[in-house]
Design a protein around this nucleic acid. Structure first.
Ligand SMILES: [Zn+2]
Ligand SMILES: [Zn+2]
Ligand SMILES: [Zn+2]
Ligand SMILES: [Zn+2]
Lengths: 140, 140
DNA sequence: CAATTGATGTAATAACATTACATATCAAAA
DNA sequence: TTTTGATATGTAATGTTATTACATCAATTG
């Protein structure tokens, strides 16, 4: 129920995809990533999707459901809940103007949603929390 | 900042789409809706998407981002926050086994997310909260 | 070595959504 | 009543996102 303690060894394609995502703080679609990697021999969407699947599994990348796009995990190393956000879920604030994404964790939100689930007998597998709006810079 | 007080008058296409969604509690994709309405003269995706856009605007339908699908609004008539969920956001628990969707509102969750936004100077426009997992029936 | 496993390459197709343009409807304004 | 503007609709084409199917390659292991 948590990410590997040590960083997993990435395959060549996984590294390439992760590096592309890690070099920008804006989310990217799989096809945009594909285009960025044509020079490195990428030809087909599946090369990207397969790498993304693994990176998601490793917890190194997040999928933004409301955007059909992906970002490198950017949560602070020493989050309140210790090693990564293995046990808690994460929320994203997405600026619709500049595309900037803030990743954060709110323990209390997590708790409230877990409580609701427990009361209803619902077994959560994955929670998505995304706030679309304007970042402080763009709202000014 | 809230849905119309009285139910809006729906056009023919809007009614057709809403009725389809309202007759099942499971989410449906736009193309599934299209197929259900072929008999009623629907031929193209846009007929569905246009109706959905309006129904979303009216607050009668919700889009499930993690599913690329739509459900009729099912929140209890007398929610804690009065008339519909005009001022608050709504959360969904989605069963990955049977497809059942529960819509609920948690004031405290809303508050925590708003607080975070306020602290960061982020101006929220729309918030998505979706919990994927197993409903009580399917988890048993 | 054979067998297994995981990663990769490629093509084709499926699923979801929008753009562009034409036409229709209806109610206010002239 | 005719014009005008706003909203709704019909249709085709296209764009974007994601998966299926199948072949190949490389490292591991019994
Ligand atoms: Zn993260
Ligand atoms: Zn911004
Ligand atoms: Zn609702
Ligand atoms: Zn279920």
């Amino acid at each position: 129920m948590n990410a590997p303690v040590s960083a997993p060894v990435l395959t060549k394609n996984q590294s390439l995809v992760f590096d592309v995502l890690n070099r920008t703080d804006a989310p990217m679609s799989a096809y945009t990533i594909l285009d960025k990697l044509r020079d490195h021999g990428f030809r087909a969407p599946l090369q990207v999707y397969r790498a993304l699947d693994k990176l998601l599994e490793f917890g190194m990348v997040h999928r933004l459901e409301s955007l059909n796009a992906f970002v490198a995990c950017a949560h602070p190393e020493s989050e309140c809940c210790g090693h990564g956000h293995g046990h808690g879920s994460v929320a994203f604030a997405i600026c619709e103007s500049c595309g900037h994404v803030s990743e954060f964790h709110d323990h209390e939100v997590d708790h409230r949603l877990s409580d609701w689930a427990k009361r209803k007998g619902f077994k959560p597998a994955k929670t998505t929390i995304e706030i679309r709006g304007l970042c402080s810079a763009c709202a000014a």
